[in-house]
Design a protein around this nucleic acid. Structure first.
Lengths: 169, 169
DNA sequence: CGGCAGCCTTAAAAAATTTAATTAAAAGAT
DNA sequence: ATCTTTTAATTAAATTTTTTAAGGCTGCCG
């Protein structure tokens, strides 16, 4: 039988100065986000947090007492998903629910001591992940990158809202 | 529609020139990717494609005859997931499997006519999405953005592989 | 007061992904 | 040359996650 050589196909690193175009954006973004989430999830495990929970803690750290719906909207998930996430996190002791005094329909969410303590761990986990991801970036590049990512989200969400209105039958 | 002027004279102490830091990266990336995928999925529906399938078509368009495992690795999913995706896409007529002549263990995957025809639709859908996302970006910004995203993925995947080796009990 | 609308939760259903186990084939060793 | 080990893909089972639909409570307004 013919012998099989399997060398030389491991890395195709010949695209050092590739001219990326707009068409490369969505796959690159998807891939980067997936890798990011993989590493971040692993880092978060040590804090007892699961994927998706970090955003809740950070949102509350920034503005405690957000409503469940507000969190859902901010984090881009549906209401039941947020309910489940909040429920689990409440069971884990990271936060607690409290009905709003003025409007009893609203469920406001507050960080507990544990939750507030976990903020640093999350930031550390995220920081570690972010640092690894941007090892060879300049600070200016990072600022620009974040700025563009936020702009992308804003541009797309404007359209998403528009399309949502279309769904009304 | 859209905002032409953004005076931003609210009594917020944040001006337009928000100083983003490394810590803003992972949430921004996650959010942007989610919004991107939401819009892209909606665009792809018209081609009969579901989420995750576009990457397969585009990979094959770039290099037809990839193995199932190669696709899985490239797209960052586990083998069974790729098997299922390929199976569904084969049933949909977008591609076909063919055992490798030299190594019968390998399943090579080739685009069909339909699959090859869908490339343009995917690129169009992605392009539409990408354009919307980067409405107000310069071309230079886009190139830089993609370059950085690719670098992020590369940096993180290096670590992901490393950690995978750690898992060996 | 009674109906309507908003917000959250629960329940049920659907989908997707991961782990583990199976089949098949190639490479290597005895 | 045969047997063992390793690699690739698939199948099966189970876990997890997300979406849709329905229910319940509250505030608002006629």
């Amino acid at each position: 039988m013919g012998k099989k050589h399997k060398d030389g196909k491991k890395h195709k690193k010949k695209k050092d100065q590739t001219e990326y175009t707009l068409a490369d954006l969505s796959p690159a973004l998807t891939q980067a986000a997936r890798s990011m989430r993989t590493v971040l999830s692993r880092n978060l495990l040590e804090s007892g947090l699961y994927a998706g929970q970090d955003g809740v803690v950070l949102s509350l750290a920034e503005s405690d007492g957000m409503t469940a719906g507000g969190l859902a909207q901010k984090l881009g998930v549906k209401a039941p998903t947020m309910t489940r996430t909040i429920g689990r996190m409440e069971a884990q002791g990271f936060l607690k629910r409290k009905p709003d005094a003025e409007d009893a329909r609203l469920t406001k969410v507050y960080l507990t001591e544990l939750g507030r303590g976990s903020v640093k761990a999350i930031e550390l986990a995220a920081s570690s992940c972010d640092k690894l991801a941007t090892l060879d970036f300049s600070e200016k590049e990072i600022r620009n990158l974040v700025r563009l990512l936020k702009a992308i989200d804003a541009n797309l969400q404007a359209e998403a809202v528009h399309a949502e209105e279309d769904e009304e039958d």
